[in-house]
Every structure is written in C-alpha cells, then in structure tokens.
Simulated assay, not measured.
Amino acid sequence: MKIAVLIPCYNEEPTIAKVVSDFRRELPEADVYVYDNNSRDRTAEVAAAAGAIVRREPRQGKGNVVRSMFRGIDADVYVMVDGDDTYPAEFVHDLIAPIVRGEADMVIGDRHSNGSYTKENKRPFHNFGNNLVKWLINALFHSDLRDIMTGYRAFNRLFVKNMPVASEGFEIETEMTLHALDKKFRIVEIPIDYRDRPEGSFSKLNTFSDGMRVLRTVFWIFKDYKPLAFFSTAAIVFFVLGLLVGVPVITEFIATHQIAKIPSAILAVGFMMLASISVTCGFILDTIVRQHRDVYQLLLNKTE
C-alpha cells in the first residue's frame, strides 16, 4: 500500500526536522509531505533538508491546508500529524493497522484514555473545552468517542476523497469527526501518548477564539446534520415563552371576558407562530438531509 504522512505546518522550525525524521524512520516506505502555511521562519527549508516533500498553501488556516492535502495527494493510507512534536511517531503503526486490515475508515489517536494529555497539557481551559465539545458531540450523535479534537489520525482513501472540508482553521478536527459520525464511516480509537511542546516551540492556538470557532462549528453542524432536533429545540423554547406570556392573558379573559393586555396577547401569538414554523422547518429540512445521506451513500458505493 502507498502511505502518505501529512504534516500541516506554521512556524514549526524548532521541531519539524525531528517530526519528519521520526516518521521517515518508522515508515521508511512512506512519502512524508510538509505543507507550509505561510511560515515566517525556516520551516520549509528545514523540512526539505530532513527529507520531506514540501508544498505550500497560501490560504491561512489549518482547514485550508488539510483541504489542499486531501485534494492533492493520492495514497491508500493517510496519516495526519501536527509538526510540533507532541505526537510520538512510534504509535503510527498502531494507527494505520486498522486501515490496512480494512477495519476502519478513520483511526483517531486518543490522547485522553491514558491521561497523558491532561498531565502534559499546560492549558487548563483547553481541557475544559475538549471535554465540553466531546460531551456535545457524543450526546448529539449517540456516540462514545474519547478524543474529538486530536491532530493525530489515519484515514483510508475512501474517507479522504469523500470528505468535503468546509472549515478554515483549527476546527477541522471537529469537522472530520462530525462528518465521520454523520456519514457512518467506521471509526476506531487507539490510545496514544501525548507530550507537551518542547522548550522553544510555541502554540498557535488561542483558547477563547479557537474555542468559540469550534463551538460555532458544532452549532452549525447541529443545524445542518440534525435539523429536526435543532428546530424542535427552538420550537420548545418559543412554545414555553408563548405560554409564559399568554397564560396571564388567557386567565384574564376567563375571569373578565375581556383582554386588556393586548401587547402580551400579540406577543404570545407571535411566539406560538414561531414555534409552529420551527417545527415545520425541522421536518422539511430533516427530509432533505435524509435524502442527502442516501445520495451520499450511493455515491460512496460507486467509488468503492
């Protein structure tokens, strides 16, 4: 099988040579690609000197890099890993094994099962954000994944060539997980070790801005992938608001046979109309999404 190691990079000069060398040692038959994303240091030169195939992606953001990698590289097995030397290369054999055996479409390097991420990660809000997103997605898709946002993954060709990448930034990992869950791709999680960045290497993540982007991605995918649940939730909110505003009006009318609170009555009717419209939209969009899933599965059958 042809194996490709994909390393998206932005200002990773202190670590990229070690990452490339480690993966070339573990997978000597693989092609190691480093996609430089407008680095301001010598990332590209160092990666090329270490033996990587260097390409450039001018559109800033990890999602843009992943989109270019998925479109531009042909292989049977794909390994995606960050260039910051936080993921040990020796685990790559465990990750690609389910792909090679045909047991998985995407393999996730699980940092949480052995506690290494919580121990090594020096950003407590990241741990909180990861747990929150994990809870939301598992509740939404009735799954039991342990690591939603890991940057260490393996894929088969079917997944890579049928993954529509819409994200531009670090929310790409969340998008890949959601896509795999929604489209019923086979997912396997493999426990791995995680180590914090070495001294001299700095993270590009921003806890709050990147966290908000991930939550925004989950929100929109909730709307797009589970429209009936999304709009039913909105309908319940409008219905409860309508009751809160409308019950005093109804009580007053029963007691006096008159309506003095005209604005409240109009507002209550408006909330109830919004509730009924939300339910209707939910059913219509749910039918469209179900048809889209059927068409997607038929297209997958033709590409297999």
Rank of each mutant, 00 (worst) to 15 (best):
Asp144Phe: 11
Arg55Asn: 06
Asn121Ala: 07
Ala97Cys: 04
Leu27Gly: 06
Arg153Gln: 11
Gly51Tyr: 05
Phe70Ala: 12
Gly63Arg: 08
Thr150Ser: 09
Thr150Val: 10
Ser68Tyr: 03
Ile148Asn: 03
Pro58Phe: 05
Ala49Leu: 13
Asn64Tyr: 11
His126Leu: 11
Leu145Arg: 10
Glu57Met: 08
Glu103Gln: 11
Val65Leu: 03
Val133Ile: 15
Ser68Asp: 05
Pro88Phe: 07
Gly109Ser: 09
Ala139Met: 09
Val133Glu: 09
Asp144Leu: 04
Ser116Asn: 05
Gly102Val: 04
Arg101Trp: 04
Ala44Trp: 00
Arg67Asp: 04
Val46Ala: 11
Leu132Glu: 08
Val92Asn: 07
Tyr35Arg: 10
Arg67Ala: 08
Thr118Asn: 11
Met149Asn: 15
Gly115Ser: 07
Arg56Trp: 09
Asn38Gly: 11
Ala50Glu: 01
Gly102Asp: 01
Asp36His: 15
Asn37Val: 12
His93Asp: 05
Ala89Asp: 01
Leu145Asp: 06
Ala154Asn: 06
Tyr117Ala: 10
Ala30Tyr: 11
Lys122Trp: 06
Asn131Lys: 10
Pro124Cys: 15
Ser68Trp: 00
Arg42Ser: 12
Tyr152Val: 04
Ser39Trp: 06
Val107Arg: 08
Phe141Ile: 08
Gly129Asn: 14
Pro98Lys: 04
Val65Met: 03
Leu95Cys: 07
Pro28Glu: 05
Arg123Tyr: 12
